[in-house]
Simulated assay, not measured.
Amino acid sequence: MTQETVVVTGAAGFIGRWVVDELLERGYTVRGLDNLSNGSRRNVAEFESHDRFDLVVGDVSDEETVSELLDEDTDACIHLAAEIDVQESLDNPQSHFEANLVGTEHVLEACRQTETRLGLVGTCMVYDMVDSKEGIDESHPVKPASPYAGTKLAAENLAESYYHGYDLPVTILRPFNTYGPFQKTGMAGGVVSIFTSRDIEGKPLKIFGDGTQTRDLVYATDTARFIVDATFSEEAVGEVINAGTGSDISINDLAKLIASEGTEIKHVEHHHPQSEVQKLLGSYEKANELLGWEPEVSLEEGVEQLREWLQEES
């Protein structure tokens, strides 16, 4: 059993919750931070009685809160706290700037002051369009198409400056589209959770646009394992690393996979077509080479596990 302590920002969010679970399983002590604007106490309710988990309700945009959370006993920080709504970032870019860039600067400075290694969780949405059948690797051009993606990319650049300028051990992580239990099923959720929830409720599955856009879908436990592995890997320090499955599926085919007999599938007008990434297919070759990581849960298995969880929750 390790005695190491890890700070997780955004700990009560969807991915944060799974990262906390992975860390506790490995024996770490976890200090979580979340302002509960997007995360929920329900997500971490099963950890509340755990003697190695504590949740602080606070915001990364508050410098004092962040600096108090990290101390000389902190061995690593995994930074997940972020505003993540693409449409909202187009409507209100300021909120994404404050959370994603200013908040990240506070985390970086606290890590610098305490010499704490940092796993910065970015997004695959920073990448430029891709037409080829080959997966997007870490050298693929970036082209943020929304303030959400722009602020996340700026946060990565800032983190890289702390690595090069201060020799802070930073690893930048870009998981592709993560799905699974505890993800929201409304508009702020992911397409797999939305489709599965609507199918259970007997509602039509609504596809924005023509449905030919594709996604590389990674199950939550695989993403969490990737984030923890990469954060503590010496070989990964200073690197940008993707986590995908190496295969993609069109939204049309995803709807067909999830829809039960009798469930209607219909197309509706896209509400933010300018920020749509047409093809997302990630290469995990670098993650496999540096970490020995590869996805373990197939899309069919993941959808079935998500369906079972949603049915139990309803």
Rank of each mutant, 00 (worst) to 15 (best):
residue 275 S to V: 05
residue 39 G to A: 05
residue 243 A to L: 03
residue 256 K to H: 11
residue 282 G to N: 04
residue 44 V to K: 05
residue 150 G to S: 11
residue 128 D to T: 06
residue 288 N to M: 13
residue 104 T to I: 02
residue 288 N to F: 13
residue 286 K to G: 09
residue 234 E to T: 08
residue 274 Q to E: 15
residue 83 E to I: 00
residue 234 E to Y: 11
residue 146 S to F: 01
residue 4 E to V: 03
residue 94 Q to P: 00
residue 150 G to F: 01
residue 5 T to H: 12
residue 238 G to Q: 11
residue 171 T to P: 02
residue 130 V to W: 13
residue 29 T to I: 12
residue 282 G to D: 03
residue 63 E to N: 13
residue 15 I to G: 03
residue 306 L to C: 06
residue 43 N to F: 11
residue 30 V to Y: 05
residue 214 T to N: 09
residue 156 E to L: 09
residue 68 E to C: 11
residue 89 S to I: 01
residue 192 V to K: 03
residue 269 E to S: 14
residue 2 T to S: 14
residue 196 T to A: 15
residue 120 L to F: 08
residue 119 G to Q: 00
residue 40 S to R: 13
residue 58 G to H: 06
residue 237 V to G: 06
residue 19 V to L: 08
residue 119 G to P: 00
residue 7 V to Y: 07
residue 70 L to K: 04
residue 120 L to G: 00
residue 160 E to H: 14
residue 99 A to Y: 10
residue 204 P to R: 11
residue 182 F to Y: 15
residue 312 E to R: 15
residue 120 L to M: 12
residue 243 A to S: 08
residue 308 E to S: 13
residue 202 G to W: 11
residue 301 E to R: 06
residue 272 H to R: 10
residue 129 M to T: 08
residue 114 T to H: 12
residue 209 G to Y: 06
residue 247 S to F: 12
residue 73 D to L: 12
residue 113 Q to D: 10
residue 170 V to P: 01
residue 285 E to K: 14
residue 32 G to T: 01
residue 293 W to N: 02
residue 118 L to H: 02
residue 212 T to P: 00
residue 286 K to D: 09
residue 137 D to R: 08
residue 14 F to L: 08
residue 250 S to Y: 07
residue 172 I to P: 00
residue 172 I to M: 13
residue 273 P to H: 03
residue 179 Y to I: 02
residue 49 S to M: 10
residue 201 E to T: 01
residue 21 D to V: 00
residue 290 L to Y: 03
residue 235 E to V: 09
residue 292 G to W: 08
residue 112 R to K: 12
residue 264 E to R: 09
residue 214 T to D: 09
residue 48 E to T: 10
residue 233 S to N: 08
residue 57 V to W: 08
residue 209 G to F: 10
residue 69 L to K: 03
residue 285 E to W: 10
residue 210 D to P: 00
residue 120 L to N: 03
residue 101 L to W: 05
residue 233 S to L: 11
residue 231 T to I: 08
residue 266 K to C: 13
residue 2 T to C: 10
